[in-house]
């Protein structure tokens, strides 16, 4: 008996934690999402009326921001993948004894606050940063074009902020690849590109899937980058939820939007994992 119980006892703290800090809030959120304002009540007073129409209203009113969230998150994820793959590859295969040093460099930005890093981007892309004057001097952008408060800035900020989430799983996958498989590929007359396509990439797929998920999911729900680097025309669904919750004090809509976002991400991720065919991950 004792042997059977032990694993469950070990799981207990984890379950307890998730129950208090995940299950209970989720139930509370679910309950809030179908409430409506108390007639004659004050701001922020809601009662349970099981109004599921809240979900439809919330989605229809904010479909633009929903769409934007997924498009921005997708672009940021693809950019992060394009940047991270060569980086992770180089660290895994080419960095020799400096491997750990480079890994520390990848993680180092995490030692500072997410917000500070985003604000730094505002300065980099700002009028007094070096990017804008340089681009103006070489005539790529006009004098009246600015880079902050644009979709470009938001996507750049997201790409940068989530880059380590992409790089680390990719590195873990690529680092595990036995170099002899690459040599074998060469021995069988595959050129570099074929080796990459037939050997390296398939073997690193778990890292690609994990990295894209770890980037895409938080990016789709992110609101800090859009708040700091964007304009009213680049707001994402996270900004709407924040404003509904804190500014309009419309808890039901905020809750309904949160659930819709969760469901949308869940569906997209399920489809993606099915297609990618890496069940071992989940």
């Amino acid at each position: 008996m004792g042997k059977i119980r032990t694993p469950y006892l070990l799981l207990l703290p984890g379950f307890g934690f998730l129950f208090v800090f995940f299950i209970l809030p989720i139930l509370n959120l679910a309950q809030t999402s179908t409430q409506t304002a108390v007639g004659g009540g004050d701001t922020g007073q809601y009662e349970q009326t099981f109004r599921f129409q809240n979900y439809i209203d919330a989605f229809v009113e904010n479909k633009e921001q929903f769409g934007r969230s997924f498009v921005y998150a997708l672009i940021a994820t693809l950019l992060a993948l394009a940047i991270s793959y060569p980086l992770a590859y180089a660290i895994a295969f080419k960095s020799g004894k400096y491997k750990n040093f480079f890994l520390v460099l990848v993680v180092a930005p995490f030692f500072t606050s997410f917000l500070l890093r985003t604000v730094a981007w505002k300065q980099i892309l700002g009028e007094e940063g070096f990017v804008v004057p340089t681009l103006r001097n070489i005539g790529i952008i006009s004098d009246s074009t600015t880079l902050t408060s644009t979709a470009f800035a938001v996507v750049m900020g997201m790409t940068y902020n989530f880059l380590p989430f992409m790089t680390l799983p990719l590195f873990a996958s690529i680092d595990r690849i036995d170099p002899r498989t690459l040599e074998a590929s060469g021995d069988l007359y595959a050129n570099g590109f074929t080796t990459f396509r037939k050997v390296t990439l398939p073997l690193s797929m778990p890292g690609v899937v994990a990295g894209t998920l770890l980037t895409f999911i938080p990016a789709a729900g992110d609101y800090v980058n859009a708040a700091i680097l964007g304009s009213p025309n680049t707001k994402m669904i996270g900004n709407v939820i924040e404003s509904r919750y804190f500014k309009i004090v419309d808890y039901p809509t905020a809750a309904a939007l949160s659930f819709t976002l969760m469901a949308a991400i869940l569906i997209l991720v399920t489809i993606y994992i099915r297609k990618a065919g890496t069940e071992e991950l989940v």
């Binding site: 304002a37 009540g41 004050d42 701001t43 007073q45 921001q65 304009s231 009213p232 025309n233 680049t234 707001k235 900004n239 709407v240 924040e242 404003s243 509904r244 500014k247 309009i248 004090v249 419309d250």
Partner: peptide, 18 residues
């Protein structure tokens, strides 16, 4: 009024992209 507060804030926030 509470009703105005909610509706007016909502209109303003929507105009602001939220």
């Amino acid at each position: 009024t509470p009703t105005e507060e909610t509706a007016w804030t909502e209109a303003f926030q929507k105009a602001a992209g939220n």
